[in-house]
Design a protein around this nucleic acid. Structure first.
Lengths: 235, 235
DNA sequence: ACCTTCATTATGTCATACATAATACCTAAA
DNA sequence: TTTAGGTATTATGTATGACATAATGAAGGT
């Protein structure tokens, strides 16, 4: 039997591959701010010589950084540091047909969390023009807005504008990412209960609250507005 | 001058690289469910022969999938499909020292949005044991809990448990990702106004509400609890 | 001054060889 | 017969050298 303390020591052996270490090395450079956004990093061959590994390894390490969105490489110019776009990165793998059902359901829920939770940012940053635009969006919707069956385009226009108002770009990107997921889950058989057409608070109601109400009111109204989705989750 | 219609045609030329196409090809396989999670994909050499490209290209395409978390490759076993862990993917690039300030601030805000918005999920899924655990966590906190200076460990213990109660694994992972960012922003000079020690609703108050209150009450209480953070953002 | 052409340069792709680690098979000892 | 241990096999990991391709900039012609 091996003692616990010994075991503790043992797992400190370096099991990482060459590429792993080179990658860590390069990322380290970025973290230390030795390189700023826009700076070019050394050529592959130079790096290979400096670090004493083959160009193959360097290329693979750089490729990882590229996939992670930390650098961009152009043909003659070499690679330059870029400010990583977090959600741009997972955009590709964020595919309804690849993700497992559990994650899909999580994502569906995540949207509900976001839209209820962002009330304060909406109220703090909304401008008069935003409200005008919201009203315009609502006026373009079908008249029986309280009963109409889920219309994806109008939903996106309205709710997308809300995200925009928050002034939080990351949040907005996140929503863009969530959209196809949400649509997929909505239509797939993942949620048992069928979508109900009944809706308590309409888009127009939400706009009224943004104009004259408070974050507290808005949160409850949005919770109400999303009631059907919640019902499908909670049964 | 080139006509618009002609231009339209022109942008359909395939500017993608070899690797791009191979990658798309492989991702396509996943999307069509030809391959399920756990399945092994063909060996690099076979793929190279099948697709008529060099092993280098295949390796690079596979590497991309690997970085995106779609596959895992073991030495002798070849590569196998894995269910992508979305946030595990960006875990690496999610580094306070690499992200730009704008994104950091967005992330900080995102946490606030999440914790207020997740009320309904907490209430719908909380169990008696969870409440007991929350109480235990609170009881371990310093006594002057209403005035104590931001203590990162207790914060993580308490709020982390809340995420856990939501039963939304993706959300939980998201929080884990946000933690270092939040800590960094909190301590860096990114937010002008200094942290205030004053706090209205305490952790204990939140637990009480979870036990006896409603999602509506909880949202407002959490908004209040996070008041200092909001104040630092909104000035 | 403008356009074209060409050399240069760094990344992209190919081919081959060998290293390494995980697996499966086989052998030898209990 | 069973099992421990060694060995062969196999697929990925790394190294090397060569050529293709595209972007840049300079030279040269109009």
């Amino acid at each position: 039997m091996i003692e616990a303390s010994v075991k503790e020591e043992m797992k400190s052996i370096d099991t990482s591959s060459l590429v792993d270490r080179v990658e860590a090395n390069l990322v380290g450079l970025l973290q230390q701010r030795k390189l700023k956004v826009g700076d070019a990093i050394p050529k592959e061959i130079e790096l290979a010589e400096t670090l004493g590994v083959s160009r193959t390894v360097i290329r693979e390490a750089l490729l990882r950084l590229r996939v992670m969105g930390l650098i961009e490489s152009k043909k003659k110019k070499g690679a330059v540091i870029t400010s990583p776009d977090l959600f741009g990165i997972i955009d590709k793998s964020m595919n309804p047909y690849i993700l497992d059902q559990e994650t899909l359901k999580d994502m569906f829920e995540l949207r509900l969390v976001l839209e209820i939770g962002m009330a304060d940012f909406i109220f703090h940053r909304v401008k008069k023009e935003d409200i005008d635009e919201l009203k315009k969006i609502v006026s373009n919707e079908p008249h029986e807005t309280e009963h109409y069956l889920f219309n994806i385009e109008h939903e996106i226009a309205f709710h997308g504008k809300l995200y925009e108002i928050t002034g939080n770009n990351t949040l907005k990107k996140f929503q863009k990412l969530l959209l196809p997921i949400f649509d997929y889950v909505h239509h797939s058989g993942l949620l048992k209960k069928p979508a109900n057409t009944k809706r308590f608070v309409s888009h127009k109601g939400l706009v009224d609250i943004i104009e004259n109400g408070s974050p507290e009111l808005f949160r409850n109204a949005m919770r109400n507005h999303l009631g059907n989705h919640f019902a499908r989750i909670f049964e």
